[in-house]
């Protein structure tokens, strides 16, 4: 070629570009794109051969031809690349769709266990009282007669003893029948103010649908300079509302316990009949859940407190009963059969 004028080449370039613009509209696959690539910027294409022969062109047109050809080449390249990406992503998308799984298949099981319902409820109750400034105290389950009965105002001939069917280890050691001995043990070692709760296993000789020989109690004891019956009411109302819900009513009914005076049984309104009376609440509209009362001043003598200087209250509840009421469990023995189909429900 012996060209001295660049206009011929420039014109040809414009034609190529236009042709390409037309052709590119027709492509419908990566293969089509490849074909255009070969045709327009392949080794034998006009653009590439033009570029290859730039060196042999006259010096005055060399820069123009070189620049213009390169611009067109880049433009074509850019469009091709864009098209190529487009078709690739289209294909990729199609390929992904082929990796179809049945998302309705079950997930892979992570092992997950559960706390025993008794533990879970104890922890819940502990948290409520910790929030009110209590600590958790503990004591032995095998107790002496002294702590279990005598120091709790229940000497040997006391009629209230017949209410407890006690397991004996020896003549004067036994399985504690309640968590109350910890009251005495704690007061012996500590001075007021005392704000404690005592969760633990207790034992009575009874075995039927509503009694197990071992069950769980939480005891509470508060002793401070100015503690009165109104404070007892406040605290237990707060507790009941936390554990059963704000809408439940609380009722304090006079009762008798040897180591509190005055003593009360605490009822919560029945949620099944909303207080109108049903089988669960025996028609009364109330469910008994707690025993409570002001600490009998006699107890202070056993622990060397001055009954004129302090007042206190104590309360106790059966965890199984609370669970049964809360979750509608009808047989207390289920708690200790450890059937995993039971434990898994809570």
């Amino acid at each position: 070629m012996n060209i001295t004028d660049s206009s011929e080449i420039i014109k040809k370039l414009a034609e190529e570009k236009e042709k390409f613009s037309r052709d590119i509209k027709e492509v419908s696959s990566s293969e089509d794109v490849y074909k255009l690539k070969v045709r327009y910027i392949g080794a034998k294409s006009f653009i590439i051969s033009t570029l290859g022969s730039v060196g042999s062109l006259p010096a005055q047109i060399r820069p123009v031809v070189g620049r213009e050809t390169n611009i067109v080449k880049k433009e074509i390249e850019a469009v091709l690349e864009q098209k190529e990406k487009y078709f690739k992503s289209l294909q990729f998308d199609l390929d992904l769709r082929k990796e179809k799984i049945d998302i309705s298949l079950p997930g892979r099981k992570m092992p997950a266990g559960k706390k025993h319902i008794i533990s879970a409820v104890i922890e819940e109750i502990e948290d409520i009282f910790i929030g009110m400034g209590f600590e958790i105290a503990e004591g032995p389950e095998v107790e002496t007669d002294y702590y279990n009965f005598e120091a709790l105002n229940t000497p040997a001939d006391h009629p209230a003893r017949s209410l407890h069917d006690t397991f004996f280890i020896s003549e004067d050691t036994l399985l504690r029948t309640h968590t109350s001995p910890v009251q005495i043990r704690y007061m012996e070692k500590n001075k007021p103010p005392i704000y404690i709760i005592v969760p633990g296993k207790v034992y009575r000789k009874d075995y039927d649908i509503s009694h197990t020989p071992m069950f769980t109690q939480i005891e509470g004891l508060v002793v401070d300079k100015t503690i009165n019956f109104g404070n007892l009411k406040w605290m237990l109302e707060k507790f009941v509302h936390e554990i059963f819900g704000k809408e439940r009513k609380v009722r304090f009914r006079p009762h008798y316990f040897p180591f509190t005076e005055p003593s009360a049984e605490v009822d919560v309104s029945c949620d099944i009949c909303a207080g109108s009376g049903c089988r669960t609440c025996g028609g009364s509209g109330w469910l008994e859940i707690l025993g409570a009362g002001m600490v009998d001043p006699n107890l202070y003598r056993y622990v060397n407190y001055d009954p004129e200087e302090v007042n206190g209250f104590a309360f106790g509840m059966g965890i199984e009963r609370i669970c049964m009421l809360k979750y509608g469990i009808n047989d207390i023995r289920l708690f200790y059969e450890n059937d995993l189909r039971f434990i898994d429900q809570f």
Partner: peptide, 8 residues
């Protein structure tokens, strides 16, 4: 799973 048995 936590179990609780009698002490006996």
């Amino acid at each position: 799973y936590e179990v609780i048995n009698y002490s006996f």
